[in-house]
Structure formats: structure tokens, C-alpha cells
Amino acid sequence: MSTEVEVATTGIKVELPKAYDDIKDLIRIDRLPHIWCPGCGLGILLKLLARAIKNSGIPIEKHVIVTGIGCTGRIGGYLRLDAYHVTHGRAIPFAVGLKMANPELEVTVVGGDGDILAIGGNHFIHAARRNDDINVIIVNNFIYGMTGGQYSPTTPKGAKTTTSPYGHFENPFNVPLLAYAAGASYVARWSVLHQNELYQSLLEMFRVKGFAVIEVLSPCIIYTDRNAMGDAVDFMKVIKERSTIDHNANLADIDIDFSMKKIVLGNFVKRERPVSYG
């Protein structure tokens, strides 16, 4: 049975197809269609995350989503869970507070590359260092989407953005290497095209005790537009053609440069490290 709900903003009736019966309880159907652009990868992550939460074996009411500001930060608002949409960059410390106050909660932070690694960068490395028992999904779309396409800490050198019109002069973060070096227990990188792998990785993240990081590569049409990379479809095709899976990759070696010639994906790190306040 599918549920039909009238959307408050548009007045149209939206029905969640039968194929989503398993997660219909987890999606705020009355808020669809969501705000993301055509071709944005966030909608795909939303579905996968809902399924992973559903099948995590952890009671749904114990799952808490904390997000900062950005397109990615909107994901919590579409999940029928305890969700906290907090200030830009501050999702991780808010999540740390939640988890410390009630260790029974399964707290997951979802944020953009700017949200987690620029304004929230300090919180990210310190939570990894402490190995706080929370999950962090970093949606890397190589740009600040929400504010209209400025460069972010993952924008590759050379890329054009609204604030790097001559091509970006800076070097980007290598996210898995950073997470590993800072102390995360679990580090993976997937893309929204790698549905099955990403889904398994999300499930693994819920099982891991300690700081779990998944970098999710996702198309943003603001980025592809600026850089004459075609549209989201073309970006997805690049990921499809150029990505290789290597779970044992040398993390120092997996930067993604502007050419995107080499995209290494995998479940890179899983290690036992004492958890703070565990």
C-alpha cells in the first residue's frame, strides 16, 4: 500500500511508490519533491541512508541525524527521525553532546565538504582524534552548492568556481587521508553511483564503534556547469568510467585532481582504537 500525502507548499498530492514501502515510514513524504537541483546526488544518498537506517538493526527511534547548513544539510529534514538542523559547521560538536549525554543514541552527521571540512574542520579533526562514537557522512561535491558555487576545501586546483574565476589556486584536502591521520576508526570513500557498495558501507558505519567517516562523491550541477564538464549525467559517467575500487589503496595516493583521471574508491580503514568516553 502506498501512502498519498498532500504537499504543503505545492498543494499537489504525492504518492510514494510501492517500491519504497520499506522506508515510507522514514521519509517525510509531505515534503517531496525535495529542494535539490535536477541531477543532484543528494536524493540518491537520502534513499540509501533511509534504507541503511531501516536495516541497521538499531531501533529507528534511537537514530539521530545532525546536519549543518548547506544543500547536504537539508537531508535530515526529509528523514522522519529525530533530526537536528544546526548552524553551519557545528553538526559534529552538537552530535558529540548528544552522544555523550545518551550513549544509546546512534548519532549520524551528514554534511557538505564546506560544512564539515572548512568551517567545521577543527571539529572534524578533534572528533576523529578523540574517536567519538559518531558517524560522519561527508558529501563531497567539490564546491559550496547552497551559496551558489564558491570554492570549497575539496575544490581541485584549477577548477573554476564563482570565487576562483581564473581557476582555483589552492590544493584540496585528501579526505580519507585526513580522516585516517586524525584518528577515525572507519574510513571509506564511495560515490552515489556505487549504490550497493555505499549501502554496505553505511551499514558498516553503524556497526563500527568509534568515529566513522564516509566520503560520498556526488554530482553538483553548479560545479559541472562552471567547469564545462557537461551536466550531472556526464559527471556520473566520469565516475563510472574512471573510478577504481581498491580497499588497500595507499591513502597518500588517492587525491582527486581536476582532471578526475583517477578516482579511487573503497573501504580503506577499519581499525580498533579506543573510544573517548566509551
Binding site: V86, G89, P93, F94, V96, G97, A101, L105, N122, H123
Partner: peptide
Amino acid sequence: MEDEIASIAAVLGASAA
């Protein structure tokens, strides 16, 4: 915490719990 911004954020998180 690592700074005061994180401190107040964690306080709000804990109170939310």
C-alpha cells in the same frame, strides 16, 4: 572541547538528549 563554538554546540546537543 576544541573551542567555545564547539562547547556551546555540545551543550545544546546534550540538552537535546
